[in-house]
Design a protein around this nucleic acid. Structure first.
Length: 455
RNA sequence: GGCCCCAUCGUCUAGUGGUUAGGACACAGGCCUUUCAAGCCUGCAGCACGGGUUCGACUCCCGUUGGGGUCACCA
């Protein structure tokens, strides 16, 4: 019986190298570590692998920390930095050399490296995801411990740190599978008991190549800018390579934590599906009360767009009517930008389809009179008023509603027209009717732009 | 190329010897309807191939093909 449940509170870590934004692959690795720690009441530790002197950039480290924070993956210890522990690595490497397990080698470029001599034999271990794995050390070249510039090489620093931080479960991408035997060799040479390992399948792009920028958004930052919610991204990422075992797809983070187990991690690489992410996100968005949506929307619009009209009252009203029609926070401005700005453009196709010159001008001015006369500007009253005008004119509701929608939103698509009006309020509705009227007259009564795409 | 890993609808997945192979996204159609969504209903679509083992294979074994990873004084 395979059982990856730890008998004591596990200690796991996420160890990114500060070379760029937090990539979705890294985010997923961080998430699985975090879920595992939270599930078992353990510790999630953060370590910055900045041992490469040339590529280290403190600004990038901060960025990764910030993005991890946005994703909601809080850490219990750290971050620690490898760049601050060079003396420790050197000491341990020298100790191995004293014992005859490592040797020095001059570098053509100057300096001396310390290299571990790989013994003959086999390395066996049981990966918590992949099962038993055996590798002949004939396949492994001697392992560099300390590079000639004095910095520790990856495998050595990694083993030393994991030991010193008392990490007992190493959960990482399966691109590290080939490193594992090397690190186990190092742990044993240091006379330490190796931790458990669990390797996660990689995330691929639609072309089955490793997911990268050229596939579109590939970093946590990009998804944040696209208006995704941390909980939506967490949910989707959790489903990449793992499933709760039943048919649930939309899971709150508490459920993710309650259900997570390494045994249910799949071995096959998964292709990132942006559409499904959007759907998952829409489900999370929908589960949020309008007030909370408004709060997030306000922050988003402020950070990503330069919206002028964005008071809490308006935001909440927009959230109430747009909530079912959006999949991301960005959708609110893409599909409902007219709620936030009065100088919107009129969609040429919409005007061509629903505005019929003088007749529409006549219609809109009658509507203006009717709406101006409404006692209370509520959806019920507005509909009643419009319906009676429709009856009086002997036309179908749509013949009035469509031109009106274009006048109020510039688009042929919007939330229910009466709700839209109440969100905008009497003043803005009447002003927009005037603006539309002016626009129609400017166009010689045609109500259309000079060039109308014919279809 | 050596070594390692993987293989269920287009995609994410459930499945652990006997199932009409289930769900979700996407897609198509329908209902609803002032538009678009949402919601509900229906449909389309899969066990890569070839050998075994077995009374019986999606499930176990071998091979083929395909895909991925890795072979740095980068992490």
């Amino acid at each position: 019986m395979k059982d990856s449940s730890p008998d004591r509170k596990p200690r796991v870590r996420f160890a990114p190298s500060p070379t760029g934004h937090l990539h979705v692959g890294g985010a997923r690795t961080a998430l699985f570590n975090w879920l595992f720690a939270r599930r078992h009441g353990g510790s999630f530790i953060l370590r910055i692998e900045d041992s490469d002197l040339k590529r280290s950039d403190p600004a990038l480290s901060r960025r990764i920390l910030e993005e991890l924070g946005w994703l909601g993956l809080d850490w219990d210890e750290g971050p620690s930095y490898q760049s601050e522990r060079f003396a420790r690595y050197r000491e341990l490497a020298e100790r191995l050399r004293d014992r005859g397990l490592a040797y020095r080698e001059d570098s053509p470029g100057g300096g001396r490296a310390l290299i571990y001599r790989v013994p003959e034999g086999e390395v066996e271990f049981r990966d918590l995801v992949y099962g038993p794995i055996t590798v002949s050390t004939a396949e492994i070249k001697d392992i560099v411990l300390i590079k000639s510039d004095g910095a520790p090489a990856y495998n050595f620093a990694c083993a030393v740190d994991d030991h010193d931080m008392k990490v007992d479960h190493v959960i990482r991408g399966d691109d590290h599978l080939p490193n594992t035997p090397k690190q186990i060799l190092l742990w044993r040479a240091l006379e330490w008991e190796p931790p458990s390992f669990a390797h996660l399948p990689l995330i691929l792009g639609p072309d089955r190549a490793p997911l990268s920028k050229r596939h579109g958004a590939a970093s946590v930052d990009a998804f944040r800018r696209d208006g995704f919610l941390p909980s939506g991204l967490r949910n989707y990422l959790a489903l990449l390579g793992w499933s709760p075992g039943d048919d649930r797809e939309v899971l709150a983070t508490e459920e993710l934590i309650a259900e997570f187990s390494l045994e249910r991690v799949i071995k096959r690489a998964a292709i990132f599906d942006y559409r499904k992410l959007e759907w998952i996100n829409s489900q999370h968005l929908r589960r949020l009360p309008p007030a909370r949506q408004a709060e997030l929307l306000g922050e988003y619009l402020k950070a990503e767009e330069g919206l002028e009209r964005a008071d809490r009252r308006l935001l909440t009203a927009v959230a109430e009517v747009m909530g079912e029609r959006t999949r991301t926070l960005r959708d609110f401005s893409v599909k409902g930008g007219y709620f936030f700005r009065d100088d919107f453009e009129y969609d040429p196709e919409a005007t061509a389809r629903h505005w019929k010159g003088a007749a529409t001008a006549e219609l809109l001015s009658r509507l203006k009179t009717v709406f101006a006369g409404c006692e209370r500007f509520t959806a019920e009253e507005l509909e009643k008023a419009l319906r009676s005008l429709v009856e009086e004119m002997g036309v179908k509701g749509g013949e009035v509603i469509h031109p009106l929608r274009v006048a109020l939103t510039g688009m042929s698509v919007s939330p229910g027209i009466f709700e839209t009006m109440t969100v905008l309020g009497r003043e803005r509705v009447l002003a927009r009717l005037d603006r539309a009227l002016t626009r129609i007259k400017e166009n010689g009564g045609s109500g259309e732009d000079a060039t109308v795409p014919s279809q």
